[in-house]
Design a protein around this nucleic acid. Structure first.
Length: 767
DNA sequence: TCGCCCTATATAAGG
DNA sequence: TATAGGGCGA
């Protein structure tokens, strides 16, 4: 096989810019491709794969390509296929971290005490199992919830920490130091159940690679090229896994690892991602080449300018300068509105306007920080009759009815799947309550058999009596009959038959809840999803790792989603509502993660703006309803950080004074920052921050007519005096307690003490 | 054991 | 405000 083919004149390289071409052709040695938003990352990735294969640098089976999501893997597979034509059949080692780790683990399962047939537990199973472990350890599971323990364990697994690698004080956050004990017991239970949770897939791989160099060597010999997408999202475990596979000194493809990512789009720190991985790449892989893709093909100059100015406030970044030839276009707009419903009303009107100009709803996206912000929009769109789709939200295979159905199928397949058996033994209600189930669990444990086997034995005794006993007996007979029929019946028919005969579908038919029809529909959809696989086993293997469902044909609809799920997408017109302190940046991020949290929020804002091709429109509301009660809000500090030459300030007519935007509290920012950051104003971060901030604030913003907005002089006080009686549309009457610039602290008679801006209150005497 | 009522709680979400 | 899960009475 030639080490390198002269392929620079190949037509698949046409149309790549010099940096993209370099990223495709640099096949040997470690390479980091820093791909800014909209710089043609996927094209580079797929072309690189095609280049390697076409030039016979490696066979498709010798390339390991990892992504985070099934969607990304699917897209890559399709696009490589399109580039290669029919000549190449699928790439066996292209997939998500988890699917590839699972594939490897199936081969070597016995090295970590599992059987090759191990089941993969989803988060729901994981939590139910943990609850059992916690209760068995005599820990109060209300004070110390399984959910909390699961998050600790996930955190440890994300860091590559098995129980033996934890110190005594590590588990102290749980039940006075019992954390590690619970973790250990949980891992032992998993082994007994022949199961692995998602974190284990990677972790077991790492253990195997570390303890069995001969196994690792085989993979070194197998893989000549490694490719990692979205490298900024990798956690420590993924990083360790990759290092082990990549650090190949003697093999055929020494260190040919290519990581692609964008530190500015790292938004999954809360999920264990370590931006550090990408920041440290050249130290981890000595001799690494770094290529920056900075030419943006997506957005206008104003959109890029606004986004770049914003992200410049971040300290920990490698730094890129995006540029475009697409000059002109609309500035990013910033609009202040009265409250959430007003925001939805204005955006709804804008969308109608867009549509009436002959553009499509598909061009439009609304990106929110938290899913609860979607509600105002849904309500308004229904009123206006605007078609929309919500992207994200609860996923198909995670719905309770689907999990129940799967549990029936798991029991059908295996008589040792305790978690599945427990889940459905009393669904639908068969009169087998918690007490009976506990007895079964105890019996199973003492006899060292599965719960199903324990049940078979126990119903021959008087241990369980009455209805519970007869129901259990009938249930076991059902299971036996189903297993027998399954030998000769197609799996889809089998599923229908089981759901029918168990009374499961009847349970939902009898349920008068509004959602139960939807659940029945989901069950039908499940059957048809199963039909795409030849056997039940093939189907079950698939769903354990692929939780999403491919989206069907597109209608012309507005997209409504969170900022997180918008990553990787683009739309001509993007609405960014809810840019208020507390909402965005989220107060919780600041409280829990301080400066790092703030920077991640800012990257999220950057992701949001850079989704837009033609126009990005930012909104903030003066009042926001949170959990049923109204709160006044201040514009997000991110609005202050937008370079003014790329921004137009608009206002909701007569309701809002544009000068408020400009004003908005440099001092207030300082205060919330102090809260979030223990270092306070003396920290380097703060000093750097204020410096950047002042740079961005040299000029006064302009309002929609182009007049410079009057900016209150520093220390300018409001027109209200302490003790004055005022009226606020949402909070009613109250008395001013304190004034600070244009910000008032008002003791409202009904709503209590609130901080509001003086533009939003009137003198009570003028009402 | 079931079912209702009350109350505690509330980001983001991939596999 | 909306919901999920626990407590308690029938």
């Amino acid at each position: 096989m030639p080490v390198r083919a002269a392929a620079t004149d190949a037509d698949y390289l046409d149309g790549l810019n010099p940096e993209q071409r370099d990223a495709v052709l640099t096949t040997e040695g470690p390479l980091l491709v820093l791909a800014g938003a909209g710089t043609g990352k996927t094209r580079v990735l797929t072309t690189r794969l095609a280049h390697i294969i076409r030039n016979r640098l490696a066979w498709p089976s010798q390339i390991l390509s990892v992504t985070f999501t099934n969607k990304a893997a699917r897209e890559m597979r399709e696009r490589v296929g399109a580039l290669m034509g029919e000549q190449v059949e699928g790439m066996p080692w292209l997939g998500t971290f988890h699917s590839i780790a699972a594939k490897i683990l199936r081969i070597h399962a016995e090295l970590v005490g599992l059987k090759s047939s191990f089941t993969i537990l989803d988060t729901d199973d994981q939590i139910r199992l943990l609850k059992q472990v916690i209760q068995a350890a005599g820990i109060d599971d209300k004070r110390w919830t399984a959910r909390y323990m699961a998050s600790l364990i996930d955190g440890w697994k994300n860091k590559g920490l098995t129980p033996d690698k934890l110190g005594a004080d590590d588990g102290y956050a749980f039940a006075e130091g019992k954390g590690v004990e619970v973790y250990t017991t949980y891992q032992n239970r998993l082994k007994v159940l022949n199961a692995a949770d998602f974190g284990d897939l990677l972790l077991h791989n790492i253990t195997i690679f570390q303890k069995h160099p001969d196994v690792l060597r085989k993979y070194h010999e197998k893989f000549r090229y490694l490719l990692v997408d979205e490298y900024q999202d990798t956690n420590v475990a993924q990083y360790l896994w990759l290092r082990l596979l990549a650090q190949n000194t003697g093999g055929s493809g020494a260190n040919n690892v290519c990581c692609v990512g964008d530190d500015d789009q790292s938004i999954y720190g809360w999920r264990g991602a370590e931006v550090d991985n990408i920041l440290r790449f050249d130290q981890d892989f000595p001799g690494a080449k770094v290529i920056r893709l900075e030419r943006n093909y997506r957005s206008t100059e104003h959109i890029l300018g606004a986004a770049s100015g914003l992200i410049a406030a971040n300290k920990d970044r490698l730094g890129k300068t995006l540029w475009t030839e697409d000059s002109g276009g609309h500035r990013v707009t910033v609009t202040g509105v009265w409250d959430g419903p007003a925001e939805a009303r204005i955006i709804g009107g804008d969308i109608e306007n867009w549509k009436s100009k002959g553009r499509s709803y598909n061009d439009v996206a609304i990106l929110v920080r938290a899913s609860r912000q979607m509600r105002n929009f849904e309500e308004r769109f229904i009123q206006l009759g605007l078609p929309y789709r919500v992207i994200g939200g609860p996923r198909f295979f995670e719905r309770a009815e689907i999990r129940d159905a799967h549990a029936y199928l798991r029991v059908l397949r295996s008589d040792t799947d305790d978690l599945a058996f427990e889940r459905i033994v009393n669904v639908p209600k068969r009169g087998i309550g918690a007490t009976s189930v506990r007895k079964l669990q105890q019996a199973a444990r003492s006899m060292n058999v599965s719960i199903e086997e324990a049940t078979r034995r126990i119903i021959r005794t008087d241990e369980i009596r009455g209805k519970a006993r007869s129901s259990l007996r009938a249930f076991l007979l059902d299971i036996d009959r189903w297993r027998k029929e399954a030998e000769t019946t197609k799996h889809t028919e089998m599923a229908e038959l089981i759901l029918d005969q168990s009374g499961y579908t009847q349970m939902w038919r009898d349920n008068k809840d509004a959602k139960s029809q939807g659940r029945l529909d989901n069950l039908k959809e499940l059957i048809s999803a199963m039909g795409e696989f030849d056997t039940l086993d093939a189907y079950m293997d698939h769903v354990s790792l692929v939780m999403d469902v491919e989206t069907g044909p597109q209608e012309d609809e507005i997209s409504l989603m969170t900022l997180h799920s918008a990553k990787g997408l683009e739309f001509p017109l993007v609405f960014l509502p809810g840019w208020e302190e507390g909402t965005f940046p989220s107060q919780r991020s600041l409280d829990e993660s301080g400066m790092a949290g703030l920077e991640e929020e800012r990257r999220l804002a950057y992701v949001g703006i850079t989704r837009a091709r033609e126009q990005a429109k930012i909104y903030f509301a003066a009042n926001r309803q949170l959990y049923g009660s109204w709160q006044s809000a201040l514009p997000s500090r991110f609005i202050d950080e937008l370079p003014i030459q790329h921004v137009d300030v608009e206002s909701e007519a007569n309701q809002y004074n544009p000068s408020l935007i400009a004003d908005k509290v440099q001092e207030d920012f300082g205060r919330s920052f102090d809260r979030a950051q223990s270092g306070g104003r003396t920290s380097p971060g703060w000093q750097r921050y204020s410096k950047n901030k002042n740079q961005n604030f040299g000029r006064a913003p302009k309002d929609i007519e182009g007049h410079a907005v009057r900016r209150p002089a520093k220390g300018k006080s409001s027109n209200f005096n302490v003790g004055e009686r005022v009226f606020h549309d949402k909070f009613g009457y109250g008395a001013v307690k304190e004034t600070e610039g244009t910000k008032l602290t008002v003791a409202f008679e009904k709503a209590g003490e609130k901080k509001v801006l003086d533009g939003f209150v009137k003198r009570a005497s003028e009402v």
